[in-house]
Simulated assay, not measured.
Amino acid sequence: MSVDQNGYIGVVGDQPFQTDFHSLLQEVRDRFSPQTLTLVHSVYIYGSIATGKAVAGRSDLDLTLILNKAPSKHDSDLIESKRRNYEIANPIVSKVDFGIGFLEDIVSADASLAWRYWLKQHCRCIAGEDLAEDILLFRPSRSLALEVNGDFEQVLGKNHRLLLVSRPASNNGRLVREASRKLIRSTNILRKDRDIDWPDTLEEHVARFQGLFPDHRDELQYFFQQAREPVAEPEYFAGRLEAFVGWMSGVLHNRAQQRLCNAWPGYAAGRSVFISASFSGLGSYHLNGHTTPSLLRSFRQCLPAFGVQRGSSLNRVKLNKSRRSKVCGNPVGIVSSSVSGLTKACRGNQT
């Protein structure tokens, strides 16, 4: 996905859909529109059909359904039944995939940036109210990449567990494919803060990664092959998946630790760092009154290694000079304390 002359990430666009898929898309509107299913707020298409690059009989139909509320078990079973029947009845696509989101996650005051990015940059509305119309364009950034794919350990950990459970071969193939695609796209979080490009296709992600980490090019090439044609044995694939995720997590941890160290260059013994958000929150952190949102994940990833537990409400962190020199190498302790009135002062600095 190109970045335009103003530095914004491009959107899918509204080019005409390919003629081969017109009747298919009309059937989607008939089966899944808000007029047919009141639980549905809007329906979006993404992937090769959305971009006009689909191949009849080979491409997938990728849909995102935004629901007005969380579905009951009956609702979930109904949607899945419709998806399965629709897939069987339409051999023009290799399979039908649904992504499910909730209206509250997109329009609320603390809306998910990942969902808003997804609808704006990758999706085309084909039924219901187009929520993307009110979403501003995005610029490439490491923080955006983390919002979009920062959940890779959780998502791929679930895939890993499912692959080790006995299930039909067709289900395993689907899991292998989904995990491979998620892993490849998640490599974008290894970008640097100064990077201004933004990969879109799997091919672009692979090329970008292999340029940055040539020693690991073969590992990612393996997952690219499985994303295209998932034929790997589940246990073997799960082992390679676990190893690669572990490597990525290590790279992120090392970088986060280094960023944390770089934030303290002029701090002597007894100096304090004021943090205006709880460790478990999603707000910006402030170092002595200076907003530093780029350090958010650094603190979240590094502080547990330094002895501060997740969920702690930190008003002030004091770093001993004798320990500071060790922070950049080995995990050590951070002395934390709460000072009366400091919370109120910090809140005044929040953004």
Rank of each mutant, 00 (worst) to 15 (best):
M248Q: 12
Q225I: 03
F209A: 05
H286M: 09
E242T: 00
A243K: 03
G289Q: 00
R297T: 11
N315E: 15
Q225S: 13
R228A: 12
R271H: 12
R255P: 01
S276E: 09
W264E: 11
F213Y: 14
V251C: 10
S294C: 02
R300C: 09
G289V: 00
N315S: 15
S280M: 10
E235W: 00
R300F: 04
D215E: 15
F209I: 05
F213A: 13
D215F: 08
S272Y: 03
T291I: 09
F213K: 03
L212H: 07
S272R: 09
D218S: 13
G283W: 00
S249V: 01
H286C: 11
Q226P: 01
F306V: 09
R271T: 06
Q257W: 05
R271Y: 08
L314C: 07
E235D: 15
H290N: 10
A243V: 05
H290K: 15
V251H: 10
D218P: 00
C302A: 07
S272H: 01
D215A: 15
E242C: 05
H216P: 03
V251I: 12
G307T: 06
W264I: 12
R228V: 05
A256Q: 13
C261W: 01
L295V: 07
E235P: 04
S276N: 14
G239K: 06
Y267C: 10
G250N: 12
V308H: 14
S249I: 01
G266V: 10
G311I: 06
F244I: 07
E242R: 01
F213N: 08
C302M: 04
P265W: 02
W264H: 05
V273I: 15
A256R: 12
P304W: 05
P265S: 04
G250P: 01
R217D: 04
D218E: 12
A243S: 10
Q225L: 11
F223R: 02
P230N: 10
A227F: 03
Y236N: 10
V245W: 07
G211S: 09
H216A: 05
H286T: 11
L241P: 02
Q226Y: 10
F224T: 03
R228I: 01
T292S: 07
D218H: 01
H216S: 05
Y222P: 02
A232H: 12
E229A: 14
L220S: 11
L241R: 04
N262P: 06
F306P: 02
E219C: 07
G270N: 09
R240W: 05
R297G: 07
F213C: 07
G250S: 11
A269M: 03
L295C: 00
S298K: 06
G283E: 11
M248K: 03
F306A: 05
F279A: 13
